[in-house]
Simulated scan of single mutants.
Amino acid sequence: MQPSKLLKPELYSAGSGDGDGATARLKGGRCRCGYVFFPMQTYGCERCGSHGDPLTPYELSTNGTLLAEATVHLHADKNRPAPFTIVKVALDDGPVIRTLLADDSARVAPGQRVTGRLVPTTQSESGETVLDHRFSAAS
């Protein structure tokens, strides 16, 4: 049975499909000036300074272009298994985000198209398997 609980439901939701490889939607925001950001917040627009009501939830696609990647071989937190790969992605909807690569053994390079998906992962504290948002090379 595949896990259904999301690791960070405040940042993303499940799209179509279920289980390993399920699509995800990022919970971003949009200002009335047109600026799109992630994650959703109401503190203030980085472009025009508006805050509160002009900032509304906006569902973001998880398709984008890889800008950079770095593999962590040794983490300061001994409970965090390494290696893992951190990626910086320019989403098609505008924001640039940093997150993890779904498959650390996959070869990726700046300029490559990537897509986000939900993958099962085990929480180190509880041992529970949950779905987390990760990027992988677009097919």
Results as ranks from 00 to 15, higher is better:
Ala138Thr: 05
Leu67Asn: 08
Ser4His: 13
Pro81Asp: 04
Arg117Trp: 02
His51Ile: 00
Gly19Thr: 09
Asn63Tyr: 08
Gly116Asn: 05
Gly29Lys: 00
Pro120Val: 11
Pro95Gly: 01
Pro54Glu: 07
Pro81Arg: 09
Arg113Val: 10
Arg117Asp: 08
Ala22Gly: 11
Arg47Lys: 13
Phe84Ile: 03
Leu74Gly: 02
Thr23Glu: 10
Thr99Glu: 07
Arg25Lys: 13
Gly17Lys: 03
Thr129His: 04
Asp20His: 14
Cys48Tyr: 02
Val96Asp: 03
Glu125Asn: 10
Leu11Trp: 04
Ala90Val: 03
Asp53Ile: 09
Phe135Ser: 10
Arg98His: 10
Gly111Val: 09
Gly49Lys: 02
Asp92Tyr: 03
Val130Cys: 08
Gly29Thr: 02
Ser126Leu: 09
Thr42Asp: 05
Arg30Pro: 06
Leu74Trp: 11
Pro9Tyr: 04
Thr99Lys: 07
Thr115Val: 14
Ser105Tyr: 02
Asp53Lys: 12
Cys48Ile: 06
Arg32Thr: 14
Ala109Trp: 01
Ser139Glu: 09
Leu91Ala: 01
Ser136Asn: 09
Gln123Trp: 02
Asn63Ala: 14
Phe135Met: 06
Phe38Glu: 09
Gly127Val: 06
Val89Asn: 05
Ala109Lys: 14
Ser16Cys: 13
Leu60Ser: 05
Ala68Lys: 01
Ser126His: 00
His133Pro: 04
Glu10Asp: 14
Gly94Ser: 08
Val119Ser: 03
Leu74Val: 15
Ile86Asn: 13
Arg98Ala: 14
Ala102His: 09
Leu100Val: 09
Gly15Ala: 15
Glu125Cys: 04
Leu55Thr: 09
Leu66Ser: 06
Leu26Gln: 00
Asn63Ile: 01
Thr23Gly: 13
Lys88Phe: 11
Asp104Ile: 00
Ser105Phe: 00
Arg47Ser: 13
Ser16Tyr: 06
